[in-house]
Simulated assay, not measured.
Amino acid sequence: MTLTVLFAASDANWQDYAAPLRAALADAGIDATLTREADPAGVDYIVYAPSSPVQDFAPFTRCKAVLSLWAGVERIVGNPTLTQPLCRMVDPALTEGMVEWVVGHALRHHLGMDRHIVNPGRVWDPTCPPLARERPVAMLGMGELGTACARALAALNFPVTGWSRTPKDVAGIPCLSGEAGLEQALCGAAIVVTLLPRTPETENTLDARRLALLPQGAVILNPGRGALIDDAALLAALDAGRVGHATLDVFRVEPLPQDHPFWTHPRVTVTPHIAADTRAPSASRVIVENIRRAEAGEPLLNRVDRQRGY
Protein backbone atom coordinates (compact mmCIF):
# COMPACT_ATOMS: atom_id res chain seq x y z
CA MET A 1 0.00 0.00 0.00
CA THR A 2 1.24 3.47 -0.88
CA LEU A 3 1.48 5.71 2.17
CA THR A 4 0.29 9.32 2.08
CA VAL A 5 2.65 11.77 3.78
CA LEU A 6 1.22 15.28 4.17
CA PHE A 7 3.78 18.08 4.28
CA ALA A 8 2.16 20.71 6.48
CA ALA A 9 4.66 23.56 6.59
CA SER A 10 5.52 26.77 4.77
CA ASP A 11 6.26 27.30 1.07
CA ALA A 12 9.90 27.93 1.93
CA ASN A 13 10.05 24.68 3.91
CA TRP A 14 8.54 22.82 0.97
CA GLN A 15 11.19 24.16 -1.38
CA ASP A 16 13.89 22.97 1.01
CA TYR A 17 12.40 19.60 1.94
CA ALA A 18 10.53 18.20 -1.04
CA ALA A 19 13.53 16.70 -2.83
CA PRO A 20 15.42 15.47 0.30
CA LEU A 21 12.29 13.85 1.75
CA ARG A 22 11.48 12.05 -1.51
CA ALA A 23 15.09 10.89 -1.76
CA ALA A 24 15.08 9.64 1.85
CA LEU A 25 11.81 7.77 1.32
CA ALA A 26 13.22 6.12 -1.81
CA ASP A 27 16.48 5.21 -0.05
CA ALA A 28 14.47 3.57 2.75
CA GLY A 29 12.38 1.60 0.25
CA ILE A 30 9.15 3.22 1.45
CA ASP A 31 6.36 3.52 -1.12
CA ALA A 32 4.86 6.90 -0.28
CA THR A 33 3.29 9.93 -1.87
CA LEU A 34 4.61 13.19 -0.42
CA THR A 35 2.02 15.91 -0.92
CA ARG A 36 0.89 19.29 0.34
CA GLU A 37 -2.80 18.56 -0.12
CA ALA A 38 -4.70 15.40 0.75
CA ASP A 39 -7.99 14.14 2.14
CA PRO A 40 -7.32 14.18 5.92
CA ALA A 41 -8.94 10.77 6.32
CA GLY A 42 -6.36 9.27 3.97
CA VAL A 43 -3.20 10.75 5.51
CA ASP A 44 -0.79 8.31 7.15
CA TYR A 45 1.83 10.76 8.45
CA ILE A 46 2.09 14.54 8.84
CA VAL A 47 5.42 16.33 8.51
CA TYR A 48 4.70 19.46 10.48
CA ALA A 49 5.79 22.98 11.38
CA PRO A 50 3.69 25.19 13.70
CA SER A 51 3.41 27.84 10.97
CA SER A 52 1.21 25.40 9.02
CA PRO A 53 -2.48 26.17 8.50
CA VAL A 54 -3.18 22.69 9.86
CA GLN A 55 -4.30 23.31 13.43
CA ASP A 56 -7.16 20.82 13.77
CA PHE A 57 -5.88 17.26 13.81
CA ALA A 58 -9.23 15.61 14.49
CA PRO A 59 -10.01 14.86 10.80
CA PHE A 60 -6.74 12.93 10.42
CA THR A 61 -8.23 9.70 11.69
CA ARG A 62 -5.70 7.41 9.99
CA CYS A 63 -2.61 9.43 10.86
CA LYS A 64 -0.04 7.36 12.77
CA ALA A 65 2.30 10.18 13.81
CA VAL A 66 2.92 13.92 13.53
CA LEU A 67 6.61 14.47 12.80
CA SER A 68 7.81 17.94 13.74
CA LEU A 69 10.42 19.79 11.74
CA TRP A 70 11.27 21.76 14.88
CA ALA A 71 13.11 20.73 18.02
CA GLY A 72 10.74 22.84 20.13
CA VAL A 73 7.13 21.66 20.31
CA GLU A 74 5.62 24.13 22.77
CA ARG A 75 3.39 25.65 20.07
CA ILE A 76 1.74 22.33 19.25
CA VAL A 77 1.97 20.04 22.28
CA GLY A 78 -1.01 21.63 24.02
CA ASN A 79 -3.34 21.37 21.00
CA PRO A 80 -6.36 19.42 22.32
CA THR A 81 -7.13 17.98 18.86
CA LEU A 82 -3.70 16.38 18.61
CA THR A 83 -4.22 12.82 19.77
CA GLN A 84 -1.71 11.24 17.41
CA PRO A 85 1.86 10.51 18.58
CA LEU A 86 4.04 13.62 18.26
CA CYS A 87 7.78 13.41 17.60
CA ARG A 88 10.13 16.36 17.91
CA MET A 89 13.13 16.89 15.68
CA VAL A 90 16.41 15.60 17.03
CA ASP A 91 18.85 15.86 14.15
CA PRO A 92 22.61 15.21 14.46
CA ALA A 93 23.29 18.21 12.21
CA LEU A 94 21.09 20.42 14.41
CA THR A 95 23.06 19.25 17.45
CA GLU A 96 26.35 19.99 15.72
CA GLY A 97 25.19 23.50 14.85
CA MET A 98 24.14 24.16 18.44
CA VAL A 99 27.47 22.91 19.79
CA GLU A 100 29.36 25.17 17.39
CA TRP A 101 27.30 28.24 18.37
CA VAL A 102 27.62 27.62 22.11
CA VAL A 103 31.33 26.80 22.02
CA GLY A 104 32.05 29.73 19.70
CA HIS A 105 30.34 32.31 21.88
CA ALA A 106 31.62 30.79 25.10
CA LEU A 107 35.18 31.11 23.79
CA ARG A 108 34.46 34.60 22.48
CA HIS A 109 33.50 35.81 25.95
CA HIS A 110 36.08 33.69 27.76
CA LEU A 111 38.92 35.14 25.68
CA GLY A 112 37.52 38.69 25.62
CA MET A 113 37.65 38.75 21.85
CA ASP A 114 35.23 41.67 21.46
CA ARG A 115 37.68 44.20 22.80
CA HIS A 116 40.21 43.18 20.16
CA ILE A 117 37.81 42.86 17.23
CA VAL A 118 36.19 46.26 17.90
CA ASN A 119 38.95 48.56 19.09
CA PRO A 120 38.52 51.99 17.41
CA GLY A 121 40.74 53.67 20.01
CA ARG A 122 43.66 51.32 19.22
CA VAL A 123 43.98 50.54 22.92
CA TRP A 124 46.91 48.24 23.72
CA ASP A 125 45.38 46.03 26.39
CA PRO A 126 47.59 43.04 27.24
CA THR A 127 45.11 41.62 29.77
CA CYS A 128 45.44 37.86 29.75
CA PRO A 129 42.28 35.80 30.31
CA PRO A 130 42.22 32.95 32.80
CA LEU A 131 42.45 29.41 31.51
CA ALA A 132 39.24 27.61 30.63
CA ARG A 133 39.62 25.40 33.70
CA GLU A 134 39.23 28.56 35.82
CA ARG A 135 35.96 29.62 34.13
CA PRO A 136 32.99 27.59 35.48
CA VAL A 137 30.02 27.00 33.19
CA ALA A 138 26.43 26.21 34.20
CA MET A 139 24.51 24.32 31.52
CA LEU A 140 20.80 24.75 32.24
CA GLY A 141 19.12 21.90 30.40
CA MET A 142 20.73 18.50 29.98
CA GLY A 143 18.71 17.06 27.14
CA GLU A 144 20.21 16.08 23.80
CA LEU A 145 21.48 19.57 22.98
CA GLY A 146 22.58 20.58 26.47
CA THR A 147 24.49 17.35 27.01
CA ALA A 148 26.31 17.69 23.70
CA CYS A 149 27.28 21.30 24.47
CA ALA A 150 28.33 20.41 28.01
CA ARG A 151 30.62 17.66 26.74
CA ALA A 152 32.17 19.92 24.11
CA LEU A 153 32.95 22.64 26.66
CA ALA A 154 34.26 20.09 29.17
CA ALA A 155 36.59 18.77 26.44
CA LEU A 156 38.11 22.28 26.34
CA ASN A 157 38.67 22.07 30.11
CA PHE A 158 35.80 24.31 31.19
CA PRO A 159 34.42 23.01 34.50
CA VAL A 160 30.82 22.36 33.48
CA THR A 161 27.95 21.76 35.87
CA GLY A 162 24.70 20.55 34.37
CA TRP A 163 21.26 21.37 35.75
CA SER A 164 17.84 20.06 34.84
CA ARG A 165 14.45 19.99 36.51
CA THR A 166 14.64 16.24 36.95
CA PRO A 167 17.79 14.30 37.94
CA LYS A 168 20.17 13.35 35.13
CA ASP A 169 23.27 11.17 35.09
CA VAL A 170 25.81 12.18 32.44
CA ALA A 171 29.26 10.62 32.50
CA GLY A 172 31.94 13.19 33.20
CA ILE A 173 29.51 16.05 33.91
CA PRO A 174 28.30 16.68 37.47
CA CYS A 175 24.55 17.21 37.28
CA LEU A 176 22.22 18.98 39.70
CA SER A 177 18.44 19.26 39.83
CA GLY A 178 15.71 21.02 41.74
CA GLU A 179 15.66 24.57 43.09
CA ALA A 180 18.61 24.07 45.44
CA GLY A 181 20.64 22.61 42.60
CA LEU A 182 19.81 25.56 40.34
CA GLU A 183 20.92 28.04 42.97
CA GLN A 184 24.15 26.09 43.48
CA ALA A 185 24.86 26.02 39.75
CA LEU A 186 24.24 29.74 39.31
CA CYS A 187 26.27 30.85 42.33
CA GLY A 188 29.49 29.58 40.84
CA ALA A 189 28.93 30.19 37.13
CA ALA A 190 31.02 32.61 35.10
CA ILE A 191 29.11 31.52 31.99
CA VAL A 192 25.47 30.36 31.97
CA VAL A 193 23.98 28.56 28.96
CA THR A 194 20.20 28.12 28.81
CA LEU A 195 19.05 25.11 26.79
CA LEU A 196 15.84 24.17 28.57
CA PRO A 197 12.59 23.48 26.73
CA ARG A 198 9.85 26.05 27.10
CA THR A 199 7.20 24.81 29.51
CA PRO A 200 5.13 26.56 32.19
CA GLU A 201 7.71 25.31 34.72
CA THR A 202 10.72 26.75 32.85
CA GLU A 203 9.33 30.17 31.94
CA ASN A 204 11.44 32.92 33.56
CA THR A 205 13.94 30.40 34.90
CA LEU A 206 16.36 33.32 35.04
CA ASP A 207 14.36 35.91 36.93
CA ALA A 208 15.59 38.79 39.09
CA ARG A 209 16.14 36.62 42.16
CA ARG A 210 18.17 33.99 40.35
CA LEU A 211 20.13 36.51 38.28
CA ALA A 212 21.17 38.10 41.57
CA LEU A 213 22.88 34.81 42.51
CA LEU A 214 25.41 35.08 39.67
CA PRO A 215 28.97 36.22 40.28
CA GLN A 216 29.59 39.82 39.22
CA GLY A 217 30.15 40.05 35.46
CA ALA A 218 28.83 36.59 34.54
CA VAL A 219 27.95 35.98 30.89
CA ILE A 220 24.65 34.50 29.69
CA LEU A 221 24.22 32.61 26.43
CA ASN A 222 20.61 31.84 25.48
CA PRO A 223 20.13 29.68 22.37
CA GLY A 224 17.22 27.81 24.00
CA ARG A 225 13.93 29.72 24.28
CA GLY A 226 13.26 33.42 24.73
CA ALA A 227 10.82 32.87 27.59
CA LEU A 228 13.49 31.23 29.75
CA ILE A 229 14.70 34.69 30.77
CA ASP A 230 12.76 37.60 32.25
CA ASP A 231 13.70 40.39 29.80
CA ALA A 232 13.22 43.26 32.25
CA ALA A 233 15.19 41.47 34.96
CA LEU A 234 18.02 40.74 32.54
CA LEU A 235 18.23 44.37 31.41
CA ALA A 236 18.35 45.49 35.04
CA ALA A 237 21.11 42.98 35.81
CA LEU A 238 23.07 44.17 32.76
CA ASP A 239 22.71 47.80 33.79
CA ALA A 240 23.88 46.95 37.30
CA GLY A 241 26.91 45.01 36.00
CA ARG A 242 25.75 41.80 37.66
CA VAL A 243 25.60 40.31 34.17
CA GLY A 244 28.58 41.32 32.08
CA HIS A 245 27.12 40.38 28.71
CA ALA A 246 24.19 38.46 27.27
CA THR A 247 24.35 36.81 23.86
CA LEU A 248 20.80 35.94 22.85
CA ASP A 249 19.62 33.89 19.89
CA VAL A 250 15.95 33.47 20.85
CA PHE A 251 13.27 35.93 21.91
CA ARG A 252 9.68 36.09 23.08
CA VAL A 253 8.73 37.82 19.83
CA GLU A 254 10.59 36.99 16.62
CA PRO A 255 11.89 38.75 14.66
CA LEU A 256 12.95 40.88 17.60
CA PRO A 257 11.04 44.20 17.32
CA GLN A 258 13.22 47.08 16.16
CA ASP A 259 12.40 49.13 19.26
CA HIS A 260 13.40 46.38 21.72
CA PRO A 261 16.18 47.61 24.06
CA PHE A 262 18.24 44.47 23.39
CA TRP A 263 19.20 45.91 19.99
CA THR A 264 20.95 48.95 21.41
CA HIS A 265 22.20 47.73 24.77
CA PRO A 266 26.02 47.77 24.79
CA ARG A 267 26.19 44.51 26.72
CA VAL A 268 23.81 42.51 24.54
CA THR A 269 24.54 40.61 21.35
CA VAL A 270 21.53 39.62 19.23
CA THR A 271 21.80 36.71 16.81
CA PRO A 272 18.74 35.94 14.61
CA HIS A 273 17.71 32.46 15.81
CA ILE A 274 20.53 30.73 13.95
CA ALA A 275 22.15 28.68 16.71
CA ALA A 276 20.67 25.38 15.59
CA ASP A 277 18.86 25.53 12.30
CA THR A 278 17.40 22.32 10.93
CA ARG A 279 19.22 21.07 7.81
CA ALA A 280 16.82 19.54 5.31
CA PRO A 281 18.91 16.56 4.10
CA SER A 282 19.73 15.19 7.56
CA ALA A 283 16.33 16.11 9.05
CA SER A 284 14.61 14.29 6.19
CA ARG A 285 16.44 11.11 7.10
CA VAL A 286 15.30 11.49 10.73
CA ILE A 287 11.67 11.89 9.63
CA VAL A 288 11.80 8.93 7.27
CA GLU A 289 13.41 6.73 9.92
CA ASN A 290 10.39 7.35 12.15
CA ILE A 291 8.02 6.45 9.30
CA ARG A 292 9.99 3.24 8.76
CA ARG A 293 9.87 2.44 12.46
CA ALA A 294 6.13 3.05 12.71
CA GLU A 295 5.44 0.83 9.71
CA ALA A 296 7.64 -1.89 11.23
CA GLY A 297 5.88 -1.66 14.60
CA GLU A 298 8.99 -0.29 16.32
CA PRO A 299 8.99 2.51 18.93
CA LEU A 300 9.12 6.03 17.53
CA LEU A 301 12.22 8.11 18.12
CA ASN A 302 12.01 11.37 20.10
CA ARG A 303 8.34 10.90 20.98
CA VAL A 304 7.05 13.81 23.04
CA ASP A 305 5.86 13.22 26.60
CA ARG A 306 2.60 15.21 26.67
CA GLN A 307 2.68 15.60 30.44
CA ARG A 308 6.18 17.07 30.48
CA GLY A 309 5.71 19.03 27.27
CA TYR A 310 8.84 17.82 25.48
Rank of each mutant, 00 (worst) to 15 (best):
A232H: 13
R75S: 14
M113E: 14
V118G: 02
I30N: 01
A9E: 13
P85W: 01
G241Y: 13
L153H: 05
G104P: 01
L248M: 15
D44C: 06
I220R: 09
R242I: 00
G121T: 14
G112V: 08
D56W: 12
P50G: 05
D125K: 08
A237D: 10
P120L: 04
S10L: 06
R285V: 08
A58E: 15
A237H: 09
A38M: 11
L234W: 04
V43H: 07
P200S: 09
G224R: 02
D11W: 08
P299F: 08
A189Y: 08
H116A: 07
A19G: 07
D31I: 02
C128Y: 05
L6I: 05
D114Y: 10
R303G: 01
G121V: 09
P92S: 03
A276P: 03
V5M: 09
F60A: 06
T33F: 01
A276T: 03
V47T: 05
G226T: 02
S68H: 08
A190S: 15
L145R: 08
T199P: 01
D39K: 13
P129A: 13
T194C: 15
P120G: 01
E96C: 11
Y310N: 01
S164Q: 06
R151Y: 03
V268F: 06
R308E: 12
R252M: 09
G181Y: 12
H110W: 12
A208W: 03
P126V: 05
P85M: 00
L176F: 15
Y45S: 00
R303W: 03
V170D: 06
A26W: 03
V90L: 11
L82M: 05
G162L: 02
A28Q: 11
A276M: 09
G224K: 01
L111F: 07
H245P: 01
P126Y: 08
S284E: 00
L234Y: 05
I287R: 04
Y17F: 15
